Simulated scan of single mutants.
Amino acid sequence: IKKLQLLNNFFFRELGFAGNVNNYYDPDNSYLQCVINSRRGIPISLAIIYMELAQQVGLPIHGISFPGHFLMKLTVSSGDIVIDPLNGSSLSHVELEERLEPYLRTSPSQGKEKKISLQPYLQNAHPHEILGRLLRNLKIIFTQGQHWEPLLKLQQRLLILRPNDPIELRDRGAAYAHLDCPQAALDDIENYLTQRPHAQDADALRAQARELRKACKKLN
């Protein structure tokens, strides 16, 4: 516990790392080199740097892909210490339940009487899972900002992590389409439709595929 307190003091006070509350959706918050330079980031990027420092001083801190807010965990003899990467504070069972509650789908008949099981949400996150979550954060930002070139590069990385994933193929196809690459877009969309012929967006994508075929013929 003493070593954890010293690490918190070093990371948050001496080095000055903190959440970028003034520009939370800046893409730079997800690029580690930018976070290291600015000392500002989001929970998951701060956690990655924090966990690396922790490993160097013998603290086996692991990431937790908690809904809505990435967390960290240190297991000690008395139990688990769950840590908020934004400030290093330890979160109580009650605080974790309050954070989790908005993401739980409960029926009106269940109300709030049903006991929340936190354990499934506090498992150690695999490095691939952490990287995937970091990339998906950027994906949302690039999609909303219609930044198609960086989105395409990001989709390529997501498909390295999850080869032939239909959702990622579909979204890469969308990026290709916006960048006027009809054949590449068509290939990804058709792959998606092959895997998910009855998806909710299947009809719209079939219509888009017809337009992409026409665009491909014009190029030929």
Score class of each variant (00 low, 15 high):
Gln195Thr: 06
Pro102Gln: 04
Ala125Met: 06
Gly88Thr: 04
Pro27Gln: 03
Asn9Ala: 09
Arg170Glu: 09
Ala215Met: 13
Arg99Cys: 06
Glu98Tyr: 09
Gly173Phe: 08
Asp84Trp: 06
Ser107Leu: 14
Leu7Cys: 10
Leu193Glu: 09
Gly19Val: 01
Thr143His: 13
Val76Gln: 14
Ala54Ile: 09
Ser107Ile: 03
Gly68Asn: 08
Asn124Gly: 00
Gln144Phe: 14
Asp201Leu: 11
Glu168Cys: 00
Ala184Ile: 00
Pro120Glu: 07
Ile64Ser: 06
Ser38Thr: 14
Phe70Cys: 01
Lys114Gly: 00
Asp180Ala: 10
Gly63Tyr: 03
Leu138Cys: 02
Val94Cys: 13
Asn124Glu: 11
Asn8Pro: 10
Gly41Tyr: 00
Phe17Glu: 05
Phe142Gln: 03
Ile61Ala: 11
Phe142Cys: 04
Arg136Asp: 07
Asn124Thr: 06
Asn220Pro: 06
Gln144Tyr: 14
Lys114Pro: 00
Thr75Gly: 03
Thr106Gln: 07
Phe142Glu: 00
Pro127Thr: 05
Tyr50Pro: 10
His128Gln: 12
Thr106Met: 07
Gln123His: 01
Asp84His: 10
Asp180Ile: 03
Glu190Cys: 12
Lys115Gln: 12
Pro85Ile: 02
Gly63Thr: 04
Arg206Pro: 05
Gln123Met: 12
Gln146Pro: 11
Ile130Thr: 09
Leu118Val: 05
Leu59His: 12
Met72Val: 01
Leu169Ile: 09
Ala209Lys: 07
Pro197Thr: 07
Arg39Cys: 13
Ala204Ser: 15
Ala209Ile: 05
Tyr24Thr: 00
His126Met: 09
Asn20Glu: 04
Ile130Ser: 03
Ile48Thr: 08
Cys34Ala: 15
Ile61Lys: 12
Ile160Asp: 02
Leu74Glu: 07
Asn191Thr: 13
Asn137Arg: 00
Glu97Trp: 04
Phe17Thr: 02
Leu74Ile: 07
Lys214Ser: 11
Leu158Trp: 05
Ala47Ser: 14
Arg99Tyr: 07
Phe10Leu: 14
Leu131Trp: 06
Asn23Gln: 11
Ile42Arg: 02
Ser45Pro: 10
His198Val: 04
Leu100Gln: 06
Leu169Thr: 08
Gly111Ser: 09
Ala209Ser: 15
Arg136Tyr: 05
Asn23Trp: 03
Pro108Lys: 02
Asn164Ser: 11
Gly111Val: 08
Trp148Lys: 09
Arg40Glu: 03
Gln5Phe: 13
Arg105Phe: 05
Leu91Asp: 06
Arg196Gly: 00
Phe17Asp: 05
Gln123Asp: 07
Asn124His: 11
Gly79Met: 08
Val82Lys: 02
Pro108Arg: 04
Phe17Arg: 07
Thr106Pro: 00
Ser45Arg: 03
Leu152Gly: 06
Gly88Gln: 00
Leu53Asn: 07
Asp203His: 13
Asn8Glu: 09
Pro150Met: 04
Pro166Glu: 08
Gln144Thr: 12
Pro60Trp: 09
Gln33Asp: 15
His178Gln: 15
Pro182Asn: 01
Tyr121Arg: 04
Leu135Arg: 05
Arg13Phe: 12
Met72Ala: 00
Gly19Phe: 06
Ile48Trp: 03
Ser77Trp: 08
Ile81Ala: 10
Leu74Thr: 07
Phe10Gly: 01
